[in-house]
Simulated assay, not measured.
Amino acid sequence: MPFNRMAIGRQDELTHPDTFKAGVAEFISTLIFVFAGQGSGMAFSKLSHGGDTTPSGLIAAAVAHGFALFVAVSVGANISGGHVNPAVTFGAFVGGNITLFKGIVYWVAQLLGSVVACLLLKFACGGMETGSFGLSGVSVTSALVLEIVMTFGLVYTVYATAIDPKKGDLGTIAPLAIGLIVGANILAGGAFDGAAMNPAVAFGPSLVSWNWECHWVYWAGPLIGAAIAGLVYELLFISQTHEHLPPTHHPEY
């Protein structure tokens, strides 16, 4: 059972060199992802005089985020697993694939990476606002459901292509699959709530622009969706495999 494998971890994990390296990798990967994704939206808005909510703007956002996440996951995969997302880290924790202490380090690094990316964008673009995620013609409940479903799809993809010990050669395309599902989800939900699927992606722009309207949706939705995906995949497809592993061996994404 996944709940039996959830672990707090040891305090010395917080100061271990490998944890520090993983945190730095998560910071850099998240910075790369948010800088490219958020920056593409700002650039398109400038070129189209505020037309970032047009169909072409939505497609541009999906392509930019998909490509950027593919790169961000790839460059961090060998060091931290390339989570680039607090929801992915939480889903991995719920499934027993990362300890709480190490997960906290990942969260701090991811949030800092997003904030620094938005600050750099604001400085480099002459003070232009980074913007923040918000609802467009949908209720808070609808947006919450959208974020839950989209993040479920993302984290389920992460489990299937990167965490599952039976993934085999499929693991080589994990970054591509993860980038593609994010791009596809942006096409599906971007016009309604921005399709964050990632609390860090929403946190940086909200902090820099100081706009917290409905911000809780971009935490609650992704974390709930990630937890469901982690539990479903672990219970249905991985639990029997883990029964044959020593309890201290938690394969990490």
Rank of each mutant, 00 (worst) to 15 (best):
M1C: 04
R5N: 09
M6C: 08
A7N: 15
I8V: 11
I8M: 14
R10N: 12
D12K: 13
T15N: 05
H16D: 13
D18C: 05
D18R: 15
F20C: 06
K21Q: 07
K21G: 02
K21R: 15
E26A: 01
T30C: 06
I32C: 09
I32E: 03
F33L: 10
F35L: 14
G41W: 05
S48P: 07
H49C: 06
G50M: 05
G50L: 11
G51D: 04
P55F: 04
S56Y: 03
A60S: 15
A60M: 15
A60R: 10
A61V: 09
H65V: 09
F70P: 01
A72W: 05
A72Y: 00
V73T: 07
G76F: 01
N78L: 14
G82I: 10
N85E: 13
N85Y: 04
P86D: 06
F90D: 02
N97T: 11
T99R: 05
T99Y: 00
F101M: 10
K102H: 05
W107L: 09
V108I: 15
L111S: 09
L112I: 02
L119H: 02
L120P: 03
L121E: 02
F123P: 02
G126F: 09
T130H: 00
G131L: 13
G131E: 06
F133R: 03
G134S: 11
V140H: 03
T141I: 13
S142P: 07
S142W: 08
L144S: 04
L146Q: 13
L146M: 12
I148R: 10
G153E: 04
V155D: 06
V155E: 05
Y156Q: 13
T157P: 10
T157S: 12
A160L: 12
A160S: 11
D164R: 07
D169G: 14
P175W: 00
A177T: 14
L187P: 10
A191N: 13
A191K: 13
D193M: 11
D193E: 11
N198P: 09
A202Q: 02
V208G: 00
S209G: 08
S209Y: 01
W219C: 07
I224T: 12
A226S: 15
A229L: 04
L231C: 09
L236P: 08
T241I: 15
L245K: 11
H250F: 01
H250T: 08
H250M: 15
E252W: 09
Y253F: 03
